[in-house]
Amino acid sequence: MTHARLVDTAAPSAPRGVVLVLHGGAARRKPMRVSPTQLSVLRMVPIAARIARAAKGELAVLRLLNSTRGWDAHHTPVDDVRWALGEVTARFGPDLPVGLVGHSLGGRAALLAAAEQPVVSAVALNPWVYPHEGHLDLTGRQVLLVHGDDDRVARPTSSAAVARDLARTAHVSYVTVEGGRHAMLRRHQVFDGIAAGFTAATLLGRPPHGPGAAVVERVLAGEQWLDV
């Protein structure tokens, strides 16, 4: 049983793929339901909109609102992603590729759920992860981690360790954003543009365009460690 919800950003009648946008947000002393107006949720609204624009009407873009804030050991955001994937299959059919884009704990959920079918790509923005969590088999997935070097909440060293481990099985790149902080407000165009360009390119199979396109081109060409 889940109390997660999906909110449409773009819902074309015949999409070629689906994107799930995953928010972060710290836990509270007692379980609390996610509010559509909490800052961690609102931060993903412009990212979802940027992805929809980059897709030019060819991708369904849905924001997932988790069951509860934070990361409950009994029911985690990964469980909510699995529920959302079931909803996507029921709504759009089983054959569309899915991309995951998450921030902070949402980035962690995107990585940990990337092995699910039919996920083909995952973007983790300033992901809050443990350094040992990269021991996953993500064969066939394209994975991008983007982390600000001035993030004081989620450690870039931990996400870099995860990236190195994930690279054993998946196509993984790691972009360091100079001066980027956890909330992604500083240099937000860089975070948003790279996430949108990479997701649209991996799901639609076409060259990236717009802000962040040059970085995404380098990622798709096989560069693993980039500074911007």
Rank of each mutant, 00 (worst) to 15 (best):
H3G: 09
H3N: 10
L6D: 01
L6R: 01
L6Q: 05
V7E: 12
A11E: 12
P15T: 03
R16D: 10
R16I: 01
L20H: 01
L20V: 11
H23A: 01
H23P: 02
G24E: 02
G25T: 01
A26G: 10
R29Y: 04
K30M: 10
R33V: 00
V34E: 03
T37S: 09
Q38C: 08
V41C: 09
M44T: 03
P46K: 08
R50M: 07
I51V: 10
R53C: 05
K56G: 05
K56A: 13
E58V: 06
E58C: 05
L59E: 06
A60M: 08
A60S: 10
L64S: 03
N66E: 08
S67K: 00
D72T: 02
H74C: 02
H75N: 00
T76S: 03
P77R: 00
D79G: 04
D80E: 11
D80F: 07
L85M: 09
V88P: 00
P94G: 12
D95A: 15
D95R: 15
L96P: 11
P97V: 13
P97W: 08
L100Q: 02
G102T: 07
G106T: 06
R108Y: 00
A109L: 11
L111Y: 00
L111C: 03
L112Y: 00
A114E: 02
P118T: 03
P118L: 12
V119P: 02
V119H: 09
S121A: 15
S121I: 03
V123T: 12
V123N: 10
A124V: 02
A124M: 05
N126V: 13
N126Q: 13
W128Y: 13
V129S: 07
Y130T: 15
L136K: 04
D137P: 00
L138Q: 00
T139V: 08
T139F: 01
G140I: 12
V143C: 07
V143P: 03
L144W: 11
G148N: 12
D150S: 15
V153I: 15
A154Y: 08
R155W: 12
P156R: 06
S159G: 13
S159R: 08
S159C: 09
A160C: 07
A160R: 12
A161Y: 04
A161L: 07
V162L: 01
R164C: 07
A167S: 13
T169C: 10
A170Y: 02
A170L: 09
T176M: 07
T176V: 15
R181I: 14
R181G: 06
H182Y: 08
A183F: 05
R186Q: 10
R186L: 12
R187Q: 10
R187A: 12
H188K: 10
H188D: 15
Q189S: 10
D192S: 13
G193L: 03
G197Q: 09
F198T: 06
F198Q: 09
A200N: 07
L204S: 10
G205N: 04
R206V: 13
H209R: 13
A214Q: 14
V215P: 02
E217R: 14
V219P: 14
A221H: 14
G222F: 06
Q224H: 14
Q224W: 00
D227Q: 12
